[in-house]
């Protein structure tokens, strides 16, 4: 399957294997709750980076810091060589960070097609005047972006549900549409929060295949939160392990799997 969505590697100065995102000593508190305590790790261009840990370890909070939903009280996040003090979500989006959510956040009343089209928002810039006329530049733009969206729909094998409001779809398909919306942004860094949670085995296998395809075909860097250790071992290049907001291990799947702290804290509990 050939996708016309342009590989994003060409658009930045960061080469494969260089640090794309660097998290330095980040701490995040909610009142008295310490969600993240002094965590540092990096994500390298082109890799699949897994973030694992028990429930409440601070994994989702970490993604929220990266895409600007939360502002950490301490520490810094450097993205593409720029150290950001406070980034707002739409700034993160326009700098090439896309994400999906743990509990699926779709536009329920809108069709699959429209949901994925919203992923093109930042790439479309024809003014309101032409949009209202639906003519000339606005029509050309709509058609051009529609083509890319159709490519993504083909890639994710969801042609049959293009015109169905997503609120009516089963959960597994909703997760796929949500991935489609993120892909429509042609992201450099794709954040996936438990993309396989609540799926059956077949759906999980499909989703794994899509994630690997995205990473390998377009070189998109992926940060992935996942509970299924088998999936993590198969998909990821490197793994960072959080527990109670602290980092307890960081390395290749094999190294992390053998780490005694991880076995005690995480594997021992979940398996």
């Amino acid at each position: 399957m050939m996708l016309h969505v342009s590989p994003t590697a060409a658009t930045t100065g960061i080469a494969k294997g260089e640090v794309l995102l660097n998290v330095e000593n980040v701490s995040l508190r909610f009142g008295g709750v310490k969600a993240i305590s002094d965590v540092s790790f990096d994500i390298v261009k082109g890799e699949v980076r897994a973030i694992i840990g028990p429930n409440g370890a601070g994994k989702t909070s970490m993604l929220n810091c990266i895409n600007g939903f939360y502002f950490p009280q301490e520490g810094h996040i450097t993205y593409k060589g720029v150290r950001r003090q406070k980034v707002r979500p739409h700034e993160a989006a326009s700098s090439g960070i896309a994400r999906t959510f743990q509990n699926v956040a779709l536009f329920k009343g809108m069709t699959t097609l429209d949901n994925i089209m919203t992923g093109r928002t930042l790439k479309m810039n024809v003014g309101l005047f032409w949009q209202l006329l639906r003519h000339g530049p606005a029509m050309r733009e709509e058609i051009e972006h529609r083509r890319k969206v159709e490519d993504i729909i083909d890639f994710l094998e969801i042609q049959a549900i293009r015109k169905i409001p997503v609120g009516k779809l089963p959960y597994g398909l909703q997760k796929r549409v949500e991935l489609g919306r993120a892909l429509a942004m042609e992201p450099e860094l794709l954040l996936l929060d438990e993309p396989m949670a609540g799926m059956n085995l077949e759906e999980k296998e499909d989703m794994c295949r899509f994630i690997l395809d995205v990473n390998q075909t377009f070189g998109t860097t992926i940060a992935l939160i996942e509970h299924d250790m088998g999936v993590v071992m198969d998909l990821s290049d490197r793994v960072v392990v959080l527990e109670y907001g602290r980092k307890i291990a960081d390395g290749t799947p094999d190294v992390v799997k053998a780490d005694q702290k991880v076995i005690d804290a995480y594997l021992g509990v979940a398996h």
Partner: peptide, 24 residues
């Protein structure tokens, strides 16, 4: 039928999802 109209519907459905695709 317009991009901004779509964005408006998106915001009405989910603020956080709208933010994540870069809608201001």
């Amino acid at each position: 039928y317009t991009r901004i109209g779509r964005a408006l519907r998106a915001v009405a459905d989910s603020h956080k999802a709208a933010l994540s695709v870069g809608i201001s």
